[in-house]
Design a binder for these strands. Structure first.
Lengths: 152, 152
DNA sequence: TAAAGATTATTAGCCTGCTAATCAAAATTA
DNA sequence: TAATTTTGATTAGCAGGCTAATAATCTTTA
């Protein structure tokens, strides 16, 4: 006779729940400043390096080509980025920040820090560090992308 | 002049990345046995108590009414559950497991444990326990729903 | 009883993920 | 050069989240 699992006792169960809850918080917080949850990650990459191709953004964000395409559409709709074609390659488009996309950076970053504080308010400094390290391990395990200090 | 954040250094950043990666793993693993990622949580609640109303399932799973509605549609499509109306309340529908929904339980649970093992393969036993406890705190923080031992 | 309010399910539509399929352009190879 | 393959962007369509709006059924209240 098969053992019946206690789903609530698995880490995956909790991870799924926290994942969904976090995504909702992210969406709500970013909605307060007129953004959607996923868009901030695109902006983050463009702030590091403007004018990247869609395919390169997708690779850095670990998302598929159609996903980045839709995200960029949304960002264009709210006038945060724009597309530009170059003569050197007729296939690709380069994504550039608009002036608004540049000037909104501090506001978006402040909102991000608020989200961070809200999410982690139940954890002390030690727990936060531990969680950070464990999540880093999980991320490497999933994506094969090691800790930040390895560069890209 | 505004301080520029290092996004990668925030826990929220890693949590977002791990969330997405986990959801992808979940979808892939469950796809192997003909299911989708979210459906397992509905089944899990029905295994605990069959014949629940949609609204009650939604509350227990912390999801919105339209979401549970779509999920149940999908489960009906693959013949794992079915709807039934009762005379006592013409508004609500009760969701019941089909024979397949009952007999597939061990297979689904085995797949779940495989996912668990895959996700956590980079963590030792201590780290898993620590992660479990921290995730539990985060979950309470988000949903106001405390640890399992508090009952429902 | 009749009217007003609350509850349940559903539809429409959006964002974030995905895969599969297309199309155009570039690169490679015969 | 010509044919083939690869690459980059896009569209269509699906699942899982959401909110807002409807419709139908209870429940409550006047």
């Amino acid at each position: 006779m098969a053992e019946l699992i206690k789903f609530e006792s698995t880490v995956s169960f909790l991870l799924a729940k926290v994942s969904t809850a976090f995504r909702n918080s992210l969406e709500r917080r970013m909605g307060e400043i007129g953004l959607h949850g996923g868009q901030i990650f695109v902006l983050f990459e463009l702030w590091k390096k403007d004018g990247q191709r869609q395919i390169d953004l997708a690779k850095k964000l670990d998302i598929a080509a159609p996903t980045i395409n839709k995200m960029i559409k949304g960002l264009i709709d709210v006038n945060l980025v724009e597309r530009a074609r170059y003569d050197d390659d007729g296939r690709s488009t380069r994504i550039f920040l608009t002036p608004l996309g540049i000037t909104m950076r501090p506001q978006i970053e402040a909102q991000w820090l608020e989200l961070e504080e809200y999410c982690l308010s139940c954890l002390n400094e030690t727990e936060r560090m531990i969680l950070f390290n464990i999540l880093n391990k999980l991320r490497s395990n999933y994506t094969g992308r090691p800790d930040p200090e390895d560069g890209e």
